[in-house]
């Protein structure tokens, strides 16, 4: 008797049905150049999360180790350039950043961003602060949001706050913007009809294909992404995520992304600033 055998067709891209694999954040401790970096905190009352984890805790050992030493960290190549840029005269006013600032002036700044700017009537990000100085004080051309100079400089300035806890203001005039950011965070968009929360709140710790989902915090931006082979801003990351959901993304520097950056920063209150972080 002939026994007909049916052979299973093995597909290369696969979805596995079975027990939920909650890989969770790992237990590694982050110490950079002797300084302990806080990568998890109990969430404050009112937070939708129980516990807040830095994205560092979700990465492989090799990726994590790239951030532990300022000579291993590839972001510092761009920071070297920014250090030189800081002392370079640029613009019609014949000034360099160093003519008005010492880099240590910026200690703590990154922890508060985005912050309210009364004159502009909206919150400002570090990119906006830098360009304001460039155009008003240096009479120089503003830098594009993802220009190498901008990324290097936001990394260099952000570095001055490394190790300090994220502490953005969401009160007063900022409340409206934080609320807008929250709305964006929880609104489904795109052909795949997903919101930030679905991956980063409801499913962090799980695998999405071969990626280990984090909580999507912004305490380490600009981030050196191995995938980009370079630094990138939080707005670039937001944009890419939206594209993956097949939504029409907002633009870097847009009010929507400023609001989202503010709201996401507030979700990470208490984490240490890790700029410049290294992620996949």
């Amino acid at each position: 008797m002939k026994i007909l055998r049916r052979s299973a067709i093995v597909a290369l891209s696969v979805s596995m049905v079975g027990a939920v694999a909650f890989a969770g954040p790992d237990d590694d401790k982050l110490v950079i150049e002797g300084e302990t970096i806080v990568t998890d905190v109990k969430a404050p009352a009112g937070s939708p999360l129980d516990h807040i984890y830095s994205g560092w805790r979700f990465r492989s050992d090799e990726t994590q180790s790239l951030q532990t030493d300022d000579f291993e960290n590839p972001a510092f190549a761009a920071i070297e350039n920014a250090i030189a840029q800081f002392d370079t005269v640029d613009g019609k006013a014949g000034k360099s950043c160093a003519d008005c600032h010492s880099i240590t002036d910026f200690e703590g700044l990154r922890t508060q961003l985005p912050r309210w700017n009364e004159e502009l009537g909206k919150p400002e990000t570090l990119e906006m602060i830098i360009n304001r100085s460039r155009t008003e004080h240096m009479q120089a051309e503003p830098w594009k949001w993802e220009a190498p100079e901008m990324l290097g400089m936001t990394a260099y300035i952000g570095l001055q706050s490394r190790g300090q806890p994220v502490d953005v203001d969401t009160e007063g005039p900022m409340a409206e913007w934080a609320a807008k950011g929250k709305e964006l965070y929880y609104t489904r968009v795109g052909q795949l009809n997903m919101s930030c929360a679905q991956c980063h709140e409801a499913n962090y710790g799980k695998m999405i294909r071969a990626d280990h989902l984090s909580q999507g915090q912004v305490n380490g931006f600009p981030v050196y992404r191995l995938k980009w082979g370079g630094l990138g801003s939080s707005h670039r990351r937001f944009k890419g995520c939206m594209r993956n959901i097949r939504a029409e993304p907002y633009q870097p520097g847009s009010d929507e992304f400023i609001a989202l950056e503010l709201y996401v920063a507030s979700r990470g209150e208490g984490l240490s600033v890790e700029t410049p972080s290294v992620r996949n």
Binding site: E80, N81, P148
Partner: peptide, 9 residues
Amino acid sequence: MASKPRVKV
């Protein structure tokens, strides 16, 4: 492009 090397010795 600006390429300022970084070296640890």
